[in-house]
């Protein structure tokens, strides 16, 4: 247990640091994925088997999608040149080191409360019951948020929608397209 903790914790931090140190986009993406998998391993180590597996599955898919977007939007996707795309590096380093020192001080100095209660025999069942019971409001908020995200991202990502083509009342006789052609035009 202790060995597994140290290996996974070191892996999570080292791969996390690699995200901003490696040169190729592919390496960066998979370094972030490795960091997520290490954290999922730590979550599994704490006995949360369902959530650990969910994190692994979600992050694998998310990083593969991210790789596609990185190749779309990075100026140097192949990593043939060293990537130096920083602004205000010393300031950012000072703020993040300061944040870590502040958090570490709090973590080490706070008199943490004693462990109370025992884990439920079936943690996944307990989580499901909780999400469908007293945490129903949380679950509904998450659902609405995800739906709003779907709508918002489609609206933002659409280049020319039907209102651009057919007018505000959708009653233009001919679609206003930059190029002619297509069905019936």
């Amino acid at each position: 247990m202790t060995v597994a903790f140290w290996v996974l914790a070191a892996a999570a931090v080292v791969f996390g640091f690699g995200v901003f140190r490696l040169n190729s986009m592919a390496q960066v993406t998979f370094s972030l994925l490795a960091s997520f998998v290490a954290v999922a391993g730590l979550v599994l180590l704490l006995g949360l088997s369902y959530l650990g597996v969910v994190i692994v599955l979600m992050m694998v898919i998310e990083m593969v999608i991210m790789a596609v977007f990185m190749i779309m939007y990075m100026m140097n996707p192949a990593g043939l040149m060293p990537m130096a795309m920083y602004h205000n590096k010393p300031g950012a380093m000072a703020i993040s080191v300061g944040t870590f020192v502040l958090l570490a001080t709090g973590i080490l100095l706070v008199d943490w409360p004693r462990r109370t209660g025992a884990p439920a025999p079936d943690l996944t069942f307990a989580l499901g019951r909780s999400l469908m019971g007293e945490q129903m409001l949380t679950m509904m908020t998450l659902g609405i948020t995800l739906f709003a995200t779907i709508v918002a991202s489609v609206v933002l990502a659409t280049g020319r929608g039907r209102y651009d083509r057919l007018g505000d009342d959708l009653d233009a006789p001919r679609a206003d397209d930059p190029l002619g052609g297509g069905v019936g035009r």
Partner: peptide, 27 residues
């Protein structure tokens, strides 16, 4: 608990460094 939280704080600080210093939106 302290070791877990220190690891989490490390990840948080590295992420903060990246979010503040990277120029690329994806990074």
């Amino acid at each position: 608990l302290q070791l877990f939280l220190l690891t989490a704080a490390g990840l948080f600080a590295i992420g903060l460094y990246g979010a503040l210093s990277q120029q690329s939106i994806v990074m």
